[in-house]
Write a protein that binds this DNA or RNA. Sequence first.
DNA 1: AAGAGAAACAACCGCAAGCGA
DNA 2: GTCGCTTGCGGTTGTTTCTCT
Length: 248
Amino acid sequence: MVRAPCCEKMGLKKGPWTPEEDRVLIAYIQQHGHDNWRALPKQAGLLRCGKSCRLRWINYLRPDIKRGNFSEEEEETIIKLHELLGNRWSAIAAKLPGRTDNEIKNVWHTHLKKRIKPNQSFQDSKRKSRAESKTDLDAIKPNRQEFASPHPLSSCSENSTSVITNSFSKVGDATSADIKEETMVSSCQLSDDIDENLWSDASLIDCGAVWSLEDSLTSFCSSGTDEGMNYWLQLFMEAGELDELPHI
DNA sequence: AAGAGAAACAACCGCAAGCGA
DNA sequence: GTCGCTTGCGGTTGTTTCTCT
């Protein structure tokens, strides 16, 4: 199989997106949606490859993106999900509405993975005190990204956002936001079935963070035959005890 | 105040799965 | 069944910003 080369044409721009490019991309998707990423940049008049446009939209321009710092609950959820799912960032992101896989991946690599290392020397290091002082500061100041590069849609009126949403509704395009919303709703609906032992930390129990292990594993195994996940599913079902899960 | 190192974030790259012809 | 195209995902890199000395 020959993979279609990305950006094979010379002259396609790379690197950081300009506000103007963002504006063009938003305007185009607002009007036409994104049925074909490959054709989109050409039709929109952008000197970018479709892949780049998709990434920019998914990770930054989408109206449902939640910007700003991760809450404690979100971070704990990521840690627990990572423990279960490994580096399946998209799967983890699906359980955190408004967060992207890229963002979660970044957060994981920058500080979350340090928390779960057996060697806790980090906690005593200068780095930790820096991190903590930064966390404190983060709580009282806008995050860097918001400050330096405001969300393109934040400058739009609320109408603009709703127009985008409406335009998706019009064409019957189930956005990932819709899908995520649906996922979360179903997760919440199923919350009664959740083995409470799964979350030893009661603070995690809220509609935005709760999900069912079985629900997750089942959807994983049904959406794609994954021997690893089947193994875990079978294991948990046989055990019937979520306490058996490794805890942090 | 300036430089060095670390952290945070955005974006790119390559691979693989899905899907239609 | 295969071929080629598109999309999605995860790993990685590059740049910017922050903190410390």
